[in-house]
Amino acid sequence: MLTMNNIGKIYQTEMVQTHALRDFNLQVNEGEFIAVTGPSGSGKTTFLNIAGMLEPFSTGQYLLDGVDVGKLNDNQRADLRNQKIGFIFQGFNLIPDLNLYENVEVPLRYRGIKASERKRRIEQCLEQVGLASRAKHLPQQLSGGQQQRVAIARALAGEPRFLLADEPTGNLDSLMARQVMELLEQINRDGATIVMVTHDAELARRAPRNIQVVDGKLADFTLYQGAPTANAHVLEGV
């Protein structure tokens, strides 16, 4: 599904060269639910941005569903992003001037899906997150948890094979966080591959597989059924 080979990311300023990621190797298989943890500044978000093709990498190779991302131009990356990836952001990133229906519609419009099909998918996804009755509401009329559910509906509407979640519960209280997490688990059970960046260790433990990013490098802890294993192995340099 997702393969990163020796990915490196260097941020260059006039004075300083910062290695945000170095020799980053990762294989994500179809249907996995992975939690990415790590301290602030470790490179979690950079990893997420590169995985989501939101920014280019400096070295290495990244294959998404067999497509060599490094060889794509900006338009091709945008199209691939639209077709394969659903994003869930920490700050929800809903468009305040659009109601829920229109927000969920945004990625579908970019894909050029016709109106009747858009309508079907939007209603289905809003139903799935329990907000079908509030389709005409504006985002600011909803609670944080509800907004994040709309963002999840938006991510699901394009029927992506791969969901990238950036601190999806970071702005939510514990109750709402739990609801959102349960929703993500349900989506994973329905077949979607999920990579979730979080700093919440408890949340991470609920994911079957944990990876940790430290100083731009990757450590992989494989977990089963929510229980951490003792023999976590470090993939650094693999």
């Binding site: 900006d74 945008a78 639209n82 077709q83 990625p107 894909r111 394009g158």
Partner: peptide, 11 residues
């Protein structure tokens, strides 16, 4: 966000 959701620059 629009770009992340698949908007091309031209869009």
């Amino acid at each position: 966000t629009r770009r992340a959701l698949g908007a091309r620059k031209s869009a």
